[in-house]
């Protein structure tokens, strides 16, 4: 049995006195897609942010790619090249055009040459249907377009793991499908390992190899694949699925 790419062990997180995450444990193997589901405020986004060093945690451990992760900023800065993250609010840099947004990481963080990176970026842009927008500025793009660029910006670093934090939550309905298709494509044809927080249940059902259901900062259910959607075990999960109405 191979070692998992990501191993989260007894993670505990507090904001001052508020207990945000209780004893979170899970493993994620290379090529797998894990979706984090749960009502808002359940700690899904916080968990995701802990996995990219944007939030400190108080107890427990994270192992990534066989390496124990400390909370040192230096180590996180290294690790973030291997763990891509995409946010709900896209967060493209408004002062840089599309290409400059994407190239910033590969050129300045990874110190690769422009000549080496450019063909890869072109290909990624084509994959997401944005090849014509390389010189556009973020303010000229729609929400869906911005989010596609944000995904490319993360992929350009060739990460081993991608974190998606409610990436379609701010989008108009007609844009949602495009973005979800891109993520689905990443899972299917590129076997990208992913952790996805989403409220799109159909999408989650199709894409998940593993589902974690969180409520009040605890993992309430941890099931493989479609089982969560077809046979939710806990009453909370049943209510949650009923409320999502899909």
């Amino acid at each position: 049995m191979s070692t998992p790419l990501l191993h989260v062990n007894h993670l505990e997180k507090y904001y001052q006195k508020t207990h945000i995450l209780h004893d979170v444990n899970f493993e994620l193997n290379t090529g797998e897609v894990l979706t984090l589901l749960g009502p808002s405020g359940s700690g899904k986004s916080t968990l995701l942010r802990c996995l990219n060093g944007l939030e400190a945690y108080q107890q427990g451990s994270i192992t990534f790619d066989g390496q124990a992760v400390t909370q040192k900023p230096k180590q996180w800065q290294q690790l973030r090249q291997q763990i891509g993250m995409v946010f709900q609010s896209y967060d493209l840099f408004p002062n840089r055009n599309v290409l400059e947004n994407i190239l910033l990481g590969p050129l300045k963080v990874q110190k690769r040459t422009r000549a080496a990176v450019l063909p890869e970026v072109q290909q990624l842009l084509e994959q997401v249907g944005m090849a014509d927008y390389a010189n556009a500025y973020p303010r000229q793009l729609s929400g869906g377009q911005k989010q596609r660029i944000a995904i490319v910006r993360a992929l350009a670093l060739k990460p081993k793991l991608m974190l998606f934090d409610e990436v379609t939550a701010s989008l108009d309905p007609e844009m949602v499908r495009d973005v979800l298709n891109i993520i689905r494509q990443l899972a299917d044809s590129h076997a990208m390992t992913m952790l996805v927080v989403t409220h799109e249940m159909d999408f989650a059902k199709q894409i998940s190899d593993q589902v974690l259901f969180l409520a009040d900062g605890r993992i309430r259910e941890q099931t493989p694949g479609k089982q969560f959607f077809e046979q939710p075990q806990t009453e909370r999960a049943q209510n949650f699925l009923a409320s999502m109405d899909f």
């Binding site: 990219n52 800065q77 973030r80 090249q81 609010s89 990481g105 990874q110 670093l157």
Partner: peptide, 13 residues
Amino acid sequence: HQKEAGQAIGLTY
């Protein structure tokens, strides 16, 4: 968010 987006692609301080 801008700061976090920058951190997420591994930028140093």
